[in-house]
């Protein structure tokens, strides 16, 4: 990928962030990847920097991923925002869709993350 893009990973699991970061870095060299462990931290970070991609977990302490996604979507209508979650309930998927969020079911795998980003890059 020629262009450098910026990604914000929001997940309370350090392990989950480590894996997703590794998958993105190995396929999209030079992309900037920042991490936040909860919604409040994520909102602070987007005050200081604009992100092309935001991948947000659902089940987090404090604000959940849908609340955060809703705030992020209203502030960044053009950004790619995805709920990356183990919670596969149809209700959660429907709510994500209604908020204009993509839905990626955990577990994250290298193929899944790479294919998702490449498909979104192709449409940008």
């Amino acid at each position: 990928m020629p262009n450098t893009k910026s990604v914000l990973l929001v997940d309370d699991s350090k392990f989950a962030r480590l894996l997703v970061k590794a998958f993105i870095s190995s396929n999209f060299a030079n992309w900037e990847i920042d991490e936040a462990e909860d919604g409040a931290k994520a909102l602070e970070m987007v005050d200081a920097k604009t992100y092309d991609y935001m991948l947000v977990d659902f089940n987090m302490p404090g604000m959940d991923g849908l609340e955060l996604g809703e705030k992020l979507r209203s502030r960044f209508p053009g950004a790619v925002i995805a709920l990356l979650t183990a919670n596969i309930q149809q209700e959660i998927q429907n709510k994500a869709e209604n908020l204009g969020l993509d839905f990626i079911a955990k577990p994250p795998t290298e193929d899944k993350i790479r294919d998702y980003i490449m498909s979104r890059e192709a449409t940008r």
């Binding site: 989950a16 089940n59 577990p107």
Partner: peptide, 27 residues
């Protein structure tokens, strides 16, 4: 913990989808 989160949500989410009843999971 992350493995547990994925496994248990997969279980409960599937059951919720079949029964059509939302189930909330704690951390």
């Amino acid at each position: 913990m992350e493995v547990g989160n994925i496994i248990l949500n997969a279980c409960l989410g599937s059951i919720s989808n079949v029964l059509g009843e939302p189930i909330n999971c704690s951390m």
